Simulated assay, not measured.
Amino acid sequence: MVSLPAVTPDWAFEREHWRRGYFRVAGVDEAGRGAWAGPVTVAAVILPGSAMDYPFRDSKQLSASQRDALAGEVRRVALSYAVEHAWPDEIEQLNILGATHAAALRALARLDPAPQALVTDYLKLRVPLPLTAPARADALSYSVAAASLLAKTERDRLMGDLDLQYPGYGFAGHKGYGAPAHRAALHTLGVSPVHRRSFAPIRALLDLPAPLLVADTGPEQA
Rank of each mutant, 00 (worst) to 15 (best):
D207I: 06
L206M: 14
E92H: 13
R19W: 04
R196C: 10
R57T: 07
P219W: 12
P88S: 10
S65G: 12
R24S: 08
P55E: 03
G168D: 08
R136E: 14
L149P: 00
A215T: 15
A102V: 07
L125F: 09
A6I: 15
G34W: 10
E154K: 04
A184S: 14
D138C: 01
L125R: 09
D207T: 08
P167V: 11
H174E: 05
L79I: 05
P219L: 13
V214Y: 05
L213A: 12
A78D: 12
Y177Q: 08
T8L: 07
K175L: 01
T120L: 10
R67A: 12
V127M: 05
G98W: 04
L162V: 06
M1D: 09
L205I: 12
P55Q: 06
G173M: 06
D216E: 10
A12K: 11
P55A: 04
F199R: 03
V74C: 07
L118C: 00
D53N: 13
G98Y: 12
W11Y: 07
A185N: 08
W11S: 00
L213W: 10
P48Q: 10
Y22N: 12
G72W: 05
P180K: 08
D68L: 03
A117W: 02
E154P: 01
A12T: 15
A117V: 07
A71H: 01
E30A: 10
Y166F: 15
A215K: 11
R197S: 12
D161N: 12
V28N: 02
L149V: 01
A103L: 13
A204S: 15
S141F: 04
R33F: 02
L62P: 00
V83D: 01
A200K: 13
G218Y: 09
Q93H: 14
P128M: 10
R157A: 15
H182D: 06
A172R: 14
A104K: 11
L111C: 03
G173N: 10
A107Q: 04
V191N: 09
G49P: 15
T217N: 15
P113R: 03
V7E: 09
T188I: 14
P201W: 04
L47C: 00
V191W: 09
R19K: 13
I46W: 02
V144L: 05
D89F: 13
V7N: 08
A99T: 02
L189Y: 14
V28Q: 03
G98M: 05
L4F: 06
P128K: 11
R33Y: 02
G168E: 09
Y122W: 12
L162R: 01
G32M: 01
G27S: 02
L189M: 13
L129G: 14
A114C: 11
L189E: 07
L129A: 13
G21S: 02
V144F: 05
S198D: 13
A43D: 03
R197A: 14
R110A: 13
V2L: 12
A37M: 03
P209F: 08
G98A: 07
A204K: 15
L212I: 08
R136F: 15
V119C: 06
Q93K: 15
D112C: 15
Q116N: 04
